[in-house]
Amino acid sequence: MLLRIRVSLPDRPGGLGQVARALGALGADILQVTVLEREAGRALDEFTVNWPAAAGEVTDRLSGAPGVRVEGYWPTRELPGSAPDYDVLTQVAADPARGLATLVDALPALCGADWALALADGVVRHASLAAPTAFDLPDPPLRPAARAGADLRLMVLPVAELHIVVARSTGPAFHRAELHRATRITDVVAKLSGRTPETTHP
Results as ranks from 00 to 15, higher is better:
Met1Ile: 10
Ser8Ile: 04
Leu9Cys: 08
Asp11Cys: 00
Gly17Cys: 12
Gly17Phe: 10
Ala28Ser: 04
Ile30Gln: 03
Leu31Ser: 02
Val33Asp: 09
Thr34Met: 10
Glu39Ala: 14
Arg42Met: 01
Thr48Trp: 04
Pro52Cys: 08
Pro52Ala: 13
Ala54Thr: 11
Thr59Trp: 03
Leu62Tyr: 02
Leu62Ala: 09
Pro66Leu: 06
Gly67Trp: 01
Val68Ala: 09
Val70Phe: 07
Glu71Ala: 12
Tyr73Phe: 15
Trp74Arg: 12
Glu78Trp: 04
Ser82Asp: 10
Leu89Val: 07
Leu89Cys: 11
Leu89Asn: 05
Ala93Met: 05
Ala97Glu: 15
Arg98Ser: 12
Leu100Val: 14
Ala101His: 13
Leu103Pro: 03
Ala106Asn: 02
Cys111Arg: 06
Gly112Ala: 14
Asp114Arg: 07
Asp121Arg: 15
Gly122His: 07
Leu129Thr: 11
Ala130Met: 08
Thr133Trp: 10
Asp139Ala: 12
Pro140Gln: 13
Leu142Ala: 15
Pro144Cys: 13
Pro144Ser: 14
Ala145Lys: 15
Ala146Lys: 09
Ala148Ser: 15
Ala150Cys: 00
Ala150Ile: 05
Val156Leu: 02
Val159Ser: 02
His163Leu: 11
His163Lys: 09
Ile164His: 00
Ala167Val: 02
Ala167Ser: 10
Thr170Lys: 09
Ala173His: 04
His180Ala: 14
Thr183Asp: 09
Arg184Met: 12
Ile185Ala: 11
Thr186Arg: 00
Leu192Lys: 05
Ser193Gln: 08
Ser193Asn: 06
Thr200Ala: 14
